[in-house]
Design a binder for these strands. Structure first.
Lengths: 83, 83
DNA sequence: CTGGAATATGCGCCATATCGCATAACTGTA
DNA sequence: TACAGTTATGCGATATGGCGCATATTCCAG
C-alpha cells in the first residue's frame, strides 16, 4: 500500500479519483467547499503544503474522512488505543 | 467515534496523547520533526489551519499515518475501492 | 512550598496558501 | 475542424503558518 503520510502528492490523486467518482467538476467541488476551482486543481496536482483545513473540507465534501492509525503494523489492540 | 474530519482540534488532542505515550516532550518532538516547541504546542491546542506537511511530519515522528476512508458507514468493499 | 522542566503566549519577520480575475491548455464531441 | 466544458497557469493582493527570541504560565518531583 502506498504510504500516504510520506507522499502528500498521493492525497491529490486520491481526491481526484474520488471527485470524478462522485461526478463532480473541480468547480463544483470548489462550490461545495468554498474553495476556488484553481485551488482544487493545485491540491489535486500535488500542492505540497496545503492547509489542513483545506484538505479536511475537501474530504468532507467528498464524504470522506481520515483516520490516524499506527504506522507500524497495527495489531488490532493498537488501533483501539487511538480511537 | 469522534469525527476527526469535522473537528481539526481533535487531531491536536490525539497528537498530544500519542506524544506522551511515546514519552516525548514537545521540544523533543520538535527536534524530530524540525519544528519548534511552540509550533507543537499550537498544533496540540487546536491550531485550526496548520499545514498538511506539518501535521504529516508530526504524525511520522510518532509512527502514525493517516488513512482516508469513506465517511458513510464503510462497507469493507467501499474501503477497498479507495486503496 | 520550592525549583526546574514543560508548556503557552506575544511580537516581528519571511515564506507561502488562497483569493480574485484573466487566460491558456487540454478533452471530448459533433 | 470547431466548439464547449474542464483544468492548468500567471499575477497582484491579503491572510496566516512557522521561525527566532523572550517570557509568562503551568506542572511536577523533592
Amino acid at each position: 500500500m502506498s504510504d500516504l503520510a510520506r507522499d502528500p502528492r498521493q492525497i491529490g490523486n486520491l481526491i481526484r479519483r474520488m471527485r470524478k467518482k462522485r461526478g463532480l467538476s473541480q468547480a463544483q467541488l470548489g462550490g461545495k467547499t468554498g474553495l476556488r476551482q484553481e485551488t482544487i486543481s493545485l491540491i489535486e496536482t500535488g500542492h505540497p503544503a496545503a492547509r489542513l483545513q483545506t484538505i479536511l473540507s475537501v474530504l468532507a465534501a467528498l464524504d470522506l474522512e481520515f483516520r490516524i492509525v499506527p504506522r507500524s503494523k497495527a495489531g488490532a489492540a493498537d488501533i483501539e488505543e487511538i480511537f
